[in-house]
Simulated scan of single mutants.
Amino acid sequence: MFLSRLLEPVKAAAKEAGATLWQLYQSGDFQQQQKADQSPVTSADLAANRIIIERLSELTPDIPIISEESKLAPLMQRQHWPRYWLIDPMDGTQEFVARSGDFAVSIALVERDWPALGVIYWPKEDILYYASRGNGAFKQQRNLINRIRVNQHHQGDTLKIAVSRRQPLQPIIDLLNSEHAVEYIALGSCSLKSCLVAEGKADCYLRLGPTGEWDTGAVHVIVEEAGGKILDSEFTPLSYNQRDTLANPDFMVMGQASTPWPDLIKARRTERDLSL
């Protein structure tokens, strides 16, 4: 009941923030700068961040908020939170700046350090993806709502892999174990590529390189409620709120659970994984 009560207001907050992003995107009236980690941030990210924090604070004043664009509370404080909001006001800032339109708003509620509710809004297409634990995953485009499921991949089928528009393809090719026919589907935004898997348009998404827990929180519950999984590059579950930073290891978004993923994709341990 608690999760179902929150879902509609959270969808509304995501759409409101997304509308602001889309207005600034179309007008070009935004400023860009580099963060300490050299990733881009724009005034549009910060405007969406303000809207989401205001709406969530009104909705649940007793639940703390973690955002990519806000100062992170120390682990000693965070580890005692029974639940918290985990948000990325604009996932895909590079896509926003590059004018591809492949950026999204991401809002998750994490309970007992595991995602319980997730909402993704894609302003360009006016699409909402959302899910809450135990209640299925859904795609809403304007007033049309459909339940979504991962693709039923069969042996011998072409393996459809979601990939980034901005990153080289060869590292992904090097991870594939088999001689399966492969189709690569390029899209911006980490969360949108994960949603491709959730709705069955891709079989998997292999993410190599830096991401934060706000990049996976909302899509984690969406993918799992659609029948898929998100695991790290050694096929073990991601964790949330367990480290000083919220950096993710490399991870894989995988569709149909019965697919023999270890036969198709090589486990991969990196120095970055070891540091976590």
Rank of each mutant, 00 (worst) to 15 (best):
M1E: 12
F2V: 10
L3D: 00
S4N: 14
P9V: 03
A12F: 01
A13F: 08
K15D: 02
E16N: 09
L21T: 00
W22I: 01
W22H: 10
S27D: 11
S27T: 15
K35T: 15
A36L: 11
A36G: 01
D37T: 12
D37F: 11
Q38P: 11
Q38F: 15
Q38Y: 14
S39V: 09
T42A: 02
D45E: 03
T60N: 04
P64D: 07
P64N: 05
S67E: 02
K71L: 13
P74A: 03
L75C: 03
M76W: 01
Q77F: 06
I87V: 14
D88G: 07
P89E: 05
T93I: 09
Q94G: 09
A98I: 03
A104K: 01
V105C: 06
S106P: 11
A108K: 10
V110R: 00
D113E: 12
P115D: 02
A116R: 11
V119E: 01
I120Y: 10
Y121E: 02
E125T: 10
E125A: 14
I127L: 03
A137P: 12
K139H: 00
K139Q: 14
Q140I: 03
R142E: 13
L144D: 10
L144Q: 14
N146M: 14
V150M: 04
N151S: 15
Q152I: 06
G156V: 07
T158L: 07
S164E: 05
L169Y: 05
I172T: 07
L175F: 03
L175E: 02
A181R: 15
V182G: 09
A186G: 09
C190L: 07
L192R: 08
L196N: 08
L196I: 01
V197F: 14
C204T: 11
G209V: 07
G209K: 09
G212E: 08
G212C: 07
D215H: 14
G217S: 08
V221M: 02
V221H: 02
I222S: 00
V223S: 04
V223K: 10
E225G: 07
G227E: 05
I230N: 03
I230A: 01
S233I: 06
S233N: 11
E234L: 15
T236V: 05
T236F: 09
P237I: 00
L238D: 03
Q242T: 08
Q242G: 00
Q242F: 00
Q242D: 01
T245F: 04
L246A: 14
Q256S: 12
P260Y: 04
K266P: 04
A267M: 10
D273N: 10
L274T: 07
L274D: 09
S275L: 13
